[in-house]
Nucleic acid binder design. Structure first.
Lengths: 241, 241
DNA sequence: GCAAAAGTGTTCATTTTACACCCATGA
DNA sequence: TCATGGGTGTAAAATGAACACTTTTGC
């Protein structure tokens, strides 16, 4: 009954599922959800692709570490960052010491994703067609994708893929890429305008071969994402590498 | 640039937000969402109410530890258990060593909650009217409540509050208690029947002062809760105290 | 029979979906 | 002026809310 139990401790690590929208270089066409992976250079799962991440440093906050490793692998700064899940079962670690991994998911802007660094052991993959990853990372990506898609319906995270000003067609493209299906432009416009999340500016995007679309901006009065009562964990890394 | 960084480690702990439906002993009437809290017997926040929980033991899995501490404080077994959030920022711990807390939320059945143990330092509170809790536990409970209410709309977790067989009126009472508002019995019946989540049995609940309602059961072919692709972490503690 | 909850039917309002059609610009 | 995406209007379809009404039991 009153057995003496020793208290568990663990090493800490973070991983991050990083989503960006990219047009497939070959097929072209509509943008899709892509994510960067890193190749493991040691056992276990040596040679397999895995989520970017790494150990937590002494005194470092969880979300900060997630943003830091994201920046180290892509050279980018997250425009959205949120905790996904914590893995810490005793059986999970192969070594002697237990390792607790806190997994985050992040969004980065499209233009930035274009100029993302791609090193020897970093590559981008379409989120729907991943190879077999290390550990249970396939499952984690699926869960992150589910969270992304679910959250798009009741929050404004789609804006995290875009810049300061954008057309409604661009915003619709984001929704279409994430949901994986086409949306009616007319109905989409009305839905977004009714939500009050965006504000029309008096600027127009010129240079298009056709009628110039109006530019919109976010309504700063509305939160970026309704994550419930829990405070959002957002950090920005301005070329801190 | 290539500074040597020491790797962070931490002690591990779990806490659990435990929800049950109870009728207020004084006002009676409709059941509401209640949860058990424990009084802290040491600093910091000595004397304040806090979420049940405790340190993780060596070799113990996270979800198992959540179910164990739940069982230790209430004598009950969770009918639903899911991870909520991980707290592990360096500044959070007052002591020298960092502490990572994994918070779970759980549902227990109504009848069982009735016979839950209430010790000297354990008390049940209505979830909507909590005192000022220790740490940031008020915020955590709010988040768990938000998750419970959100999840009710697209999953079958309401069933976790009920037994094997139940009437549609009982199921409606659960929804009403969680959502905090009355629902139209006729429309609720149609909605539930259309969802295909429940199956009508050929049994009826007798002993009521009026027309005996039909008993239903879960459709085992449908998952209890659509938590996305991540596997559910469920454990059952059959009087293991 | 009466009261009360179980269960069914129907109407009305609202939202969603589909799609026709006009507008404004570059070429 | 023509092609094309931007933007508006509108009707059908689906959904949701409200509520009248019938059924079945205990008393």
């Amino acid at each position: 009954m009153t057995t003496k139990h020793e208290r568990a401790s663990a090493l800490l690590a973070v991983s991050t599922v990083i989503f960006a929208l990219r047009k497939d270089d070959e097929t072209g066409g509509e943008p899709q959800v892509w994510l960067p992976l890193v190749r493991r250079i040691r056992e276990p799962f040596q040679g397999r692709w895995a989520l970017p991440g790494g150990p937590l440093r002494v005194g470092e906050d969880l979300a900060y570490a997630a943003g830091r490793t994201l920046n180290e692998t892509t050279g980018l700064a997250p425009s959205y960052l949120e905790q996904l899940y914590a893995f810490g079962d005793a059986s999970r670690s192969s070594g002697a010491e237990r390792v607790v991994s806190i997994v985050y998911w992040a969004l980065v802007r499209g233009e930035e994703a274009e100029r993302a660094v791609v090193g020897e052991n970093v590559a981008w993959f379409p989120a729907d067609h991943l190879p077999e990853l290390a550990f249970d990372h396939n499952l984690i990506v699926e869960y992150a994708l589910w969270r992304l898609r679910t959250k798009m319906e009741y929050s404004r995270i789609a804006h995290a893929f875009l810049g300061e000003r954008f057309t409604l067609a661009q915003l619709r493209e984001v929704h279409e890429a994430v949901l994986g299906r086409a949306l009616d432009p007319a109905n989409f416009r009305r839905t977004i305008e009714a939500s009050g999340a965006v504000v029309a500016t008096d600027e127009y995007l010129t240079g298009t071969p056709h009628r110039p679309p109006r530019l919109y901006r976010y309504d700063d009065a509305v939160d970026l994402a309704d994550a419930g009562p829990l405070p959002l964990q957002q950090h920005f890394f301005k070329g801190e590498s």
